[in-house]
């Protein structure tokens, strides 16, 4: 059972405190038929799915589709999109999946990030894509939603603070437009470390 609305447990509902000891032994003593019926009745199981109006192809791993308008045709064609976006909440009224709550994290151990790899990740459209909003050195088509990152090292931020900002900036500013890269699993722990190393290298 989900602990939805109380406390998000990214590790999965099986590890929710108190659940393992209480429900599951009783569950295994009941008949398998009842177990299946109960599973269907749990709204947390069937509701936390893609809504029926999502533009997806359920038969392929990258489910998200993009429309292709064909001239002089009454049909709208759909093609696979380059990224799979089906795992996160949509605008649909039927979508019962929750947004991930802001998460405070602490950087453990030395940073050990690679600035060169970090720059590549910062430029990639499916990863950081930082220049959409920030000015970066060597990038002509940048944005100004966020602050300029030119000479960012001179701000002397702590590695741990930058790690938190990239992992989930909502902790620092709930009104931010910056994506929670770590909480929403866009970047892994090592990838965030690389990007922090890149930021700390910007003269």
């Amino acid at each position: 059972m989900h602990q939805r609305g109380k406390e998000p447990r990214p590790t999965g509902f099986l590890t929710a405190p108190g659940m393992t000891g209480l429900v599951f032994p009783r569950l295994f003593r009941t008949k398998p038929g009842a177990w299946l019926v109960s599973l269907l009745l749990l709204p947390g199981v069937w509701a936390a799915e893609l809504p029926p109006d999502a533009a997806v192809d359920r038969g392929v791993p990258t489910m998200t589709l993009t429309p292709q308008v064909v001239v002089h045709s009454g049909r709208l064609e759909w093609e696979p999109f380059s990224r799979d976006l089906s795992a996160w909440p949509t605008l649909s009224h039927a979508d019962r999946r929750s947004t991930e709550k802001p998460r405070r994290v602490s950087l453990t151990g030395p940073l050990e990030g690679d600035a060169t790899r970090g720059r590549e990740l910062a430029m990639r459209r499916d990863k950081g894509f930082c220049m959409l909003c920030h000015q970066l050195p060597g990038e002509q088509w940048s944005g100004n939603f966020g602050i300029s990152l030119l000479g960012y090292r001179l701000n002397h931020h702590a590695d741990a603070d930058l790690y938190q900002q990239v992992f989930d900036p909502r902790v620092n500013n709930p009104h931010t437009a910056m994506p929670p890269y770590g909480t929403n699993r866009i970047l892994s722990d090592q990838e965030i470390r690389d990007i922090v190393a890149y930021l700390q290298s910007l003269e």
């Binding site: 893609l50 809504p51 109006d53 999502a54 533009a55 997806v56 998200t64 589709l65 993009t66 429309p67 709208l76 990224r83 976006l85 089906s86 996160w88 949509t90 605008l91 649909s92 994506p179």
Partner: peptide, 8 residues
């Protein structure tokens, strides 16, 4: 903006 679109 990285959101799964819906059908028109």
């Amino acid at each position: 903006s990285g959101t799964q679109p819906l059908r028109p």
